[in-house]
């Protein structure tokens, strides 16, 4: 490598310097532009100025009394809880210097060294703000704490309740589902049995509306039939409604004669509903009142007795022995 002339500066360095200069210039340039940028501020509009002045007034205005009091008290408390010995100015304190000369060591109390009760901290100050009797503040605090605790307990208790309720609701929904399933099984098995007994096999015929009066259906699954029929009725009514010209399906006008009725399409017998549906069914109502678990149990028992079918095994056993079935309840089938 050639020896470098000490006078000459490496080119890259000069470049750097130049760059720096440029940057500085740029900065200068930038800094010159800043006041320009502030120029528009001076030209604030009248309302802007008003707003600004108001802001400034608010800022310089004394704080509200309550806030000031709090501030004062906070300042006082800070001062009261800060030891003078640990303050940064303590080293310069002449009082402390004199004490040091007398043999004082920070952290050691004054007086005879045999005095274990000598204070290290000054006696605190507490300011009484009202005429409350002795123990009132403590009592208030205690009551407040009690209240907080009670509230906490209540919330927790409610939380527990909620969980329990949700759990119970879910259980009911689950049981109702199983009841529905059991009812369907029971119904179809009963139907099959009946058909077998009657020797009629109508394959493919879909049962829509039972011709049997509702009350003759076994109470265990009568609810299912009734529900189905109600659903069917509603469906038909909706259908009829859509078919009819008049929106007022049930509106019978005495002035209308047969002709009118025909014209309006009302002569068609719309009420093909099972009359049973209109009737009260206290037996069913009483059954529905029962606990879902109880209804389910009754259905399960019915299926076992009548059809040798275990609802939980989903299997029709050949005889009443129920060989291999663990038992009557769902738990036993877990």
């Amino acid at each position: 490598m050639p020896t470098q002339d000490p006078q000459t500066v490496p080119p890259d360095e000069t470049e750097k310097e130049q760059k720096q200069e440029e940057e500085e210039e740029e900065e200068d340039y930038m800094s010159m532009i800043i006041p320009e940028q502030t120029l528009p501020k001076r030209k604030e509009t009248y309302t802007q100025r008003l707003l600004r002045q108001q802001r400034e007034r608010e800022a310089s205005q004394p704080k509200p009394k309550a806030e000031r009091l709090l501030h004062e008290a906070a300042q006082r408390d800070t001062a009261l809880s800060t030891s003078l010995l640990s303050s940064p100015n303590a080293q310069k304190n002449k009082g402390l210097a004199m004490m040091a000369k007398m043999g004082f060591k920070p952290g050691v109390a004054l007086g005879s060294k045999d005095n274990p009760h000598a204070r290290l901290e000054p006696v605190g100050i507490s300011i009484k703000e009202d005429r409350g009797g002795i123990g009132l503040d403590a009592e208030k605090k205690r009551k407040f704490n009690d209240e907080v605790e009670r509230e906490g307990k209540r919330v927790r208790a409610e939380e527990g309740d909620y969980r329990e309720r949700v759990r119970r609701e879910r259980e009911v929904v689950r049981l109702e589902g199983q009841i529905g399933a059991a009812m369907r099984v029971a119904e179809s098995m009963a139907g099959e049995k009946e058909e077998v007994e009657m020797g009629v096999v109508e394959v493919g015929k879909k049962r829509t509306i039972s011709t049997k009066p509702l009350k003759s259906v076994n109470i265990l699954w009568r609810g299912l039939i009734r529900q189905r029929e109600e659903k069917e009725r509603d469906r038909r009514m909706r259908y009829d409604l859509q078919q009819s010209l008049s929106r007022h399906v049930n509106y019978d006008n005495d002035d209308e004669d047969a002709e009118d009725k025909r014209a309006l399409g009302r002569d068609v017998v719309q009420h093909t509903l099972v009359e049973d549906l209109e009737e009260e069914d206290p037996e069913l109502d009483a059954f529905s009142e029962l606990d879902p678990a109880e209804r389910l149990e009754k259905l399960v028992v019915h299926l076992r007795q009548e059809h040798n079918y275990c609802f939980w095994c989903k299997f029709t056993y050949p005889n009443k022995e129920f060989e291999g079935c663990p038992g009557l309840t769902e738990e036993e089938h877990d």
Binding site: S83, L84, L85, M99, M102, G103, F104, P106, V108, A109, L110, G111, S112, K113, N115, H117, A118, R119, L120, E121, P122, V123
Partner: peptide, 12 residues
């Protein structure tokens, strides 16, 4: 500092 008082005050 070592004056034997019954209840010496706080150093501060």
């Amino acid at each position: 500092v070592h004056f034997d008082l019954m209840d010496p005050p706080a150093p501060e």
